[in-house]
């Protein structure tokens, strides 16, 4: 187990380095010059003033240094927790901007992932043993899971937001309110939360339900299920074993899905104007804000890596076959 952990940590560490490097590199390969943009925003005409302003900004952002030194400085700053200064919201530090947005993204993602996983697997397991439910759940599941996130989001915004008027269609909270810990504000927050959450939840739900249904049917046909039934084991016991074994591929699926769900969350936020990381990425790109883009994507990368790492560990704990593979079978 210890060797396994060490190996996993090494792999994840390497992935992290590569991801951070790419993350640093990609904004620099984008067209456009953020310093020019900031200078232009000041609307000065005098060429000397422009030159000195540009020089000042380049020094501030460290863009006057050779590229390899910028890279090293980036790493050094990273370990100090310094993600640089936002160009768009100058002079707010990037870390502050990102940390304000993170709770919104986590707030829709974590409930959507957990609930869709739990509800989807439960519905799928039930569908595997009820023809009626199967005939309903399967087509609905295929329909929902085939929808792109933003499309379902737009449908929901139109249907439940515009047409029925049940939910607001934009923002994280009412623009007339000031963020604070009051019942009015929290209720408003939840009201705005429903639609983005629902679109993420629904798209993930169908996939889990279909996967679980097929896995359970496969497990119930397997040799160990037949043997147990032949020895007079009650249906409950056979199904309990089948469910447990069918969960294993689903856990792997969860790890693989995280990145996709995160991408979906980012897009969904943009549709609903939800003030999370997704909206931040869009604003950063629109304003050529290298540092904000880097900082946001860094959080995304860290989030996915940590979640995958946790799932890797969970998987080893629930499947003895991976464990024996690690220590060497003693048959």
């Amino acid at each position: 187990m210890r060797g396994y952990l060490a190996r996993k940590t090494l792999v994840y560490g390497l992935t992290f380095v590569v991801a951070v490097t790419l993350n640093w590199l990609i904004p620099r390969l984008m067209p456009g010059d953020p310093v020019q943009r900031m200078v232009a925003r000041a609307a000065v005409q005098h060429p000397e003033t422009i030159a000195s302003m540009a020089a000042y900004y380049e020094r501030t952002f460290g863009l006057d240094l050779p590229i390899w030194q910028q890279y090293l400085n980036y790493w050094a700053a990273l370990f100090r927790g310094d993600l640089g200064t936002s160009v768009w919201l100058f002079p707010t530090p990037v870390s502050q901007v990102v940390l304000e947005a993170v709770p919104y993204t986590l707030g829709i993602m974590i409930p959507a992932i957990v609930l869709s996983f739990v509800v989807g697997n439960t519905v799928g397991a039930m569908a595997a043993r009820s023809r009626w439910l199967d005939n309903v759940a399967l087509p609905v599941g295929y329909l929902v899971t085939a929808m792109p996130y933003m499309w379902l989001a737009i449908l929901l915004a139109w249907g439940l937001g515009v047409a029925l008027g049940w939910f607001p269609v934009a923002g994280g909270y009412d623009f007339g309110l000031v963020p604070q810990w009051s019942w009015t504000f929290v209720a408003d927050l939840l009201h705005h939360w429903v639609l983005p959450f629902l679109s993420l939840f629904l798209v993930s739900l169908g996939g889990w339900a279909i996967g679980m249904r097929n896995l359970i049917i496969y497990e119930l046909e397997s040799d160990y299920s037949n043997y147990l039934s032949a020895l007079g084991a009650p249906r409950r016991l056979v199904r309990r074993y089948a469910f447990r074994n069918a969960m294993l591929p689903q856990i792997t699926g969860l790890a693989l899905q995280l990145g996709t769900v995160l991408g979906g969350a980012l897009v969904t936020e943009i549709v609903f104007g939800y003030p999370g990381l997704g909206k931040l990425v869009l604003s950063a790109i629109q304003n050529q804000d290298f540092f904000l883009l880097q900082g946001t994507l860094l959080f995304v990368v860290i989030g996915v890596l940590v979640a995958n790492f946790v799932i890797d560990i969970v998987y080893v704990l629930v499947d003895p076959r991976t464990r024996t593979g690690l220590t060497g079978a003693t048959a």
Partner: peptide
């Protein structure tokens, strides 16, 4: 393959 692979 008669025995549940994930149970002792």
């Amino acid at each position: 393959s008669a025995m549940n692979p994930t149970r002792k």
